[in-house]
């Protein structure tokens, strides 16, 4: 599929037409930061955002998602996806989604997630501003983003729109697109290549070297407890992570006391009770009872356990965990530097 071009002056009308056709989500400002939100008008769209507080996984796997609903007589699946367009996803978040797609579809196909995923058209966009903590250029660098339906790049005078799937191509009808010139395509490539040079943080070692060293440090209890000394077990690093997808499940009743729902909620392996079971008579067993053990599990998972399956680490370098950690101990670049030096 060949690349198209739309002028700055026509872009707003393109977004408006898409909004009229169905729900469109994109980055919008929230106080001093950004979030993905349903767009009411094209003016809200902030393609110049650096990073959103939560990754776009929230649109496919919401923080609270009903799995089944029941009443006195029956129970049924709560899967009810919304056909939508998601506009303006940076490539690192596309990679996060692609990883989650694999993990939620392999072995057992999770329709509660995949239904939302398969009814969404994703338009990725170039990174106009790089957040302070991002290191996406130095993680999984050889693995291209995939799973999106089109790629939008801001260049002089407008945007290059590269359709990648039929879904992406179908969006062309909403705007005044013309074929992009070779020069425009070349400029788009240059813009995207330049974004990779702007990260302030970067890994100094290859994913293979990191995986080997982190795995070898598994039994170094002193190291993990030192790294986790200031950990609040708040799970913020998990909650904002585009590649975290663990959940808890709870049943609740509605106020009629008869009907209700079984709901899954984002859970976090850094929180204290994540691996705790009741043994009866008030006794419990916590299979990851210390801060160090929980901290270690996150780093094993992000840099060791899933590498073979994903072909890259389970980290996309968005830097959200670094920014979200109040104690500032979660930054993968700094933590891995410390482990490499151990």
């Amino acid at each position: 599929m060949s690349s198209m071009f739309i002028k700055d002056d026509d872009f707003s009308a393109f977004v408006t037409t898409m909004i009229e056709a169905g729900p469109v989500y994109g980055p919008v400002a929230k106080r001093s930061r950004f979030i993905f939100e349903r767009l009411e008008s094209p003016e809200e769209l902030r393609l110049d955002y650096d990073v959103t507080i939560l990754p776009p996984k929230k649109l496919f796997f919401p923080p609270a998602q009903d799995l089944i609903r029941f009443d006195a007589d029956e129970f049924k699946s709560a899967i009810d996806p919304e056909e939508k367009v998601l506009l303006g996803v940076h490539f690192y978040d596309v990679k996060g989604l692609d990883q989650t797609d694999l993990l939620y579809s392999e072995r057992n196909f999770d329709s509660s997630y995949m239904a939302n995923r398969q009814t969404t058209t994703i338009v990725a966009s170039n990174i106009q501003n790089v957040s302070d903590r991002a290191f996406f250029a130095s993680v999984g660098a050889g693995v291209p983003a995939k799973g999106h339906d089109a790629f939008l790049t801001s260049i002089t005078g407008g945007y290059v729109f590269e359709p990648l799937t039929e879904r992406g191509e179908a969006l062309l009808k909403h705007g005044a697109f013309v074929a992009a010139t070779d020069a425009q395509v070349a400029e788009a490539e240059k813009v995207n290549a330049e974004a990779l040079t702007k990260c302030k943080e970067k890994h100094e070692h290859s994913a293979e070297d990191i995986a080997a060293k982190v795995a070898a440090a598994f039994d170094n209890e002193d190291l993990w407890s030192e790294l986790a000394e200031d950990c609040f077990s708040c799970g913020s690093c998990n909650t904002v992570c585009p590649t975290c997808y663990c959940f808890d499940v709870q049943d609740t009743w509605n106020v009629d006391a008869v009907s209700g729902q079984r709901t899954r909620y984002w859970d976090a392996c850094l929180t204290a009770d994540f691996a705790q079971v009741s043994l009866g008579e008030g006794a419990t067993e916590n299979f990851r009872g210390s801060r160090g053990e929980r901290f270690r599990h996150r780093f094993m998972r992000k840099s060791v356990y899933l590498n073979d399956k994903l072909g890259q680490p389970a980290c996309v370098g968005c830097g959200r965990c670094s920014a979200a950690c109040t104690a500032d101990i979660a930054d993968p670049v700094r933590v891995i530097d410390r482990i490499m030096a151990s």
């Binding site: 929230k30 923080p63 077990s233 708040c234 799970g235 913020s236 909650t239 929180t271 204290a272 979200a324």
Partner: peptide, 12 residues
């Protein structure tokens, strides 16, 4: 038994 940070992050 988890902290308020969890709920802040969930609602962005």
């Amino acid at each position: 038994n988890y902290p308020v940070c969890v709920e802040c992050k969930r609602r962005e």
